[in-house]
Nucleic acid binder design. Structure first.
Lengths: 111, 111
DNA sequence: ACCAAGGTACGAACAATTTCGTACCTCAGG
DNA sequence: CCTGAGGTACGAAATTGTTCGTACCTTGGT
């Protein structure tokens, strides 16, 4: 079965406020950072991120990410797939994903 | 008298989480967007943004922006100046400020 | 010395967010 | 058909964030 896409906003309707609010949470930002780092943009399982939070809370966070337009969620009934909306994000907010990769505190510059 | 700079984080220590949390609020984002749009980077008075909130709340928001490293606050005693830390932001998170100018919902594409 | 304007400190009220418990749904595999 | 794994719905508790009232500080002007 092909799995049905749960709907988020159109590419042109991505709202910077919603995106920043979504990325303000550490758990959600770590998910997007991980997705952004994988240049193959392959679909990931929802539980492949091992977040240190309950599954109910994960449901909440993935919903926030989808409603912000950052990910697609594919519903297979008893499991769920996640895919980064890289093209849409890059079109609307070019460079945003690159920031996430540059995000971690500068431990890379030990003077 | 020259005014004393209130201290925020070093340029290298800017944290993406703190920055996103700071920009997640509409009032704070509007301030940074306004500063980012002005390429002269001149110092602004704190009350030149006419935010629809009380001055106590403004104090709170400007403090959040300073602690995130986005602005410098210059204390003159009975009034305060604000300046965007453009160079530091661009160094640590290149392209971030450009996103703010591209931020408003796409009303510019009426098909 | 006084006052008004701009700003801060502290604290409380209010609102939003994060988290999880309980109960339930869906599908794959015996 | 039963069970287990993965996921959602709903609601409540806890945490965090926003807002402002009251009181106070600082400086420039009168």
């Amino acid at each position: 079965m092909a799995g049905r896409n749960l709907d988020g906003p159109e590419a042109d309707a991505l709202d910077l406020g919603a995106v920043f609010r979504a990325l303000a949470d550490e758990h959600r930002r770590s998910v997007i950072t991980e997705l952004a780092t994988d240049r193959s943009d392959s679909e990931r399982g929802c539980n492949s991120f091992d977040l240190p939070i309950s599954k109910q809370t994960q449901t909440h966070h993935f919903r926030v990410l989808r409603e912000a337009g950052l990910i697609d969620e594919i519903d297979y009934g008893n499991r769920k797939g996640v895919r980064l909306r890289r093209a849409d994000i890059e079109k609307r907010f070019p460079g945003l994903l690159a920031l996430l990769e540059a995000g971690p505190p500068a431990d890379t510059a030990p003077r």
